[in-house]
Design a protein around this nucleic acid. Structure first.
Length: 415
RNA sequence: GGAUCUUUGGCAGAGUUGGUCGAAUGCACCGGUCUUGAAAACCGGCGAGGGUUAUACCUCCCAGAGUUCGAAUCUCUGAGGGUCCA
């Protein structure tokens, strides 16, 4: 959630930043006004409540002294009616404010480039040059079927479209990749955690998936629980409602989970193959830091994800997302795109984001900052999407006859 | 599934004849005295959010509803945990 105090203090700066993310200034103005109205309603209610409290105290004293309370009671009873009304207004205002505030995205960092969509993203650097093929490289679904690694039809049979089944070496490679990545991340100082893949509404509010993006989540109707779209949700929320000691920070974690997404807005996109699945494996990085160190940890996470690809000998590039492509919670995001020779293009395989204090404010994750409590910064990044990594391996390591060479670093994991 | 108990500040743990309880006490933590330094001892501070220049003031004792002038304390519902029965 954006900082309402800051909004009151510096409306212009904030609305300028948010308008870069296509948030209508009138919305921000509305938010400011609602905030002021809530304040007013609160003051009103609290004044009445204070009266009530002091009269009640008096009441106790009167009783003890055996004095007549009928007059006081009449006063108190009258006040009660006003309190009920004031409380009701306050509640309404509170709810209005919250509904609006929770649906406003994070402000982009100042150095995030302006832009409308992914075409305006800015490449930072390329790592490893795509190697030249002496034959026309195939796309991964062809290779996957030819090698018997992935069965798309049977995935559909078991569930619905956008589900698949991995067999034999395909399945083995997925497992190898997960283990390899977790080990890799551990060595970089990210503690391995294993978390629930079903979470409640509150956790999803904390990281920003709710209330705005409920359509893209799988919901367990009977219980108000949801399948996680990313490990970012349970891992970040591990520390919700907590006040951490500064000495504990930064907390750096890595987790493997399956992820579940309805892909509601993606009809018709990537319908073939396993680029866009409803269920996929992902190894995630999450960090909780002080504001002073979040940029440093961001770079560490980005390097960590990029180095995994380098270790796998996969050509990739780093891309700074422009304002138009930036996610809801992120102040800054760098995507890592892996080279897919079959598709002859770079495709997103990882996304590292700094949400600054946006999620921290929603999830109430704070730390002792001297003698006061301040919001932490939270960061997350994939390292990596396992299915897409497998796709990249298939396409980059394919031989002319359609067989696939296994990257050297994975050999210990599949024997 | 049935019965019963329980849910308090970072932790432990008082508080159940409703009033001055945001809450004893201990531990932990922070500051100080003492010490060459540390430990011990002693003194002081120490929940969170809102609000204020600062006070005042308001809210929070699992969640929600209720009784009452007044609820951590009583009633109901729900959730989590324990024990027993099945």
């Amino acid at each position: 959630m954006i900082d309402l105090k800051l909004l009151q203090k510096d409306f212009d700066a904030m609305s300028a930043k948010l308008s870069r993310k296509k948030v209508d200034t009138s919305l921000i103005a509305d938010l400011k006004q609602k905030n002021e109205e809530l304040k007013k309603a609160k003051t009103e209610f609290e004044t009445l409540q204070a009266m009530q409290n002091s009269m009640s105290k008096e009441f106790g004293i009167y009783k003890k002294e055996g004095r007549d309370v009928s007059e006081l009671k009449a006063k108190v009873d009258a006040n009660k009616i006003n309190i009920a009304a004031a409380l009701e207004t306050q509640r309404e205002r509170q709810e209005e404010l919250e509904t609006l505030a929770m649906s406003i995205p994070n402000m982009p960092d100042d150095n995030v480039p302006d832009g409308a969509d992914e075409n305006d993203n800015i490449e930072i650097k390329k790592v490893l040059a795509p190697h030249a093929f002496t034959f026309a490289p195939k796309e991964h679904w062809e290779l996957a079927e030819q090698n018997g690694w992935i069965d798309f039809e049977r995935g559909v049979k078991l569930a619905t479209s956008r589900f698949s089944v991995s067999f034999g070496m395909g399945a083995k490679l997925e497992r190898a990749l997960i283990n390899f990545m977790l080990n890799f991340n551990s060595k970089r100082g990210f503690e391995e955690v294993s978390v629930p893949v079903i979470v409640n509404r509150n956790a999803l509010k904390g990281t920003g998936q709710l209330p705005k993006f409920e359509d893209d989540l799988y919901k367990i109707d009977s219980q108000e629980l949801f399948l996680i779209p990313t490990a970012e949700v349970p891992v970040t929320n591990l520390f919700a409602d907590e006040i951490l000691e500064e000495s504990q920070l930064p907390i750096k974690m890595t987790a493997y989970t399956p992820c579940f997404r309805k892909e509601a807005g993606a009809a018709g996109r990537d319908t073939r193959g396993m680029i866009r699945q409803h269920q996929f494996h992902k190894v995630e990085l999450v960090a909780i830091t002080t504001p002073q160190t979040s940029d440093k940890v961001f770079d560490e996470m980005l390097a960590c994800a990029s180095d995994v690809l380098t270790a796998l000998e996969l050509p990739h590039r780093l891309v700074t997302l422009c304002t138009g492509d930036l996610g809801f919670s992120a102040a800054k995001t760098v995507d890592i795109e892996v080279w897919l020779p079959g598709q002859n293009t770079y495709r997103e395989i990882s996304s590292v984001s700094n949400t600054r204090d946006f999620q921290a404010r929603r999830a109430k994750i704070r730390y002792k900052d001297g003698d006061k409590n301040s919001m932490v910064h939270t960061l997350n990044g994939s390292s990596l999407a396992v299915g897409r990594t497998l796709v990249a391996i298939m396409e980059n390591f394919q031989n002319e006859d359609g067989t696939i060479t296994i990257p050297k670093v994975l050999e210990p994991y599949i024997n």
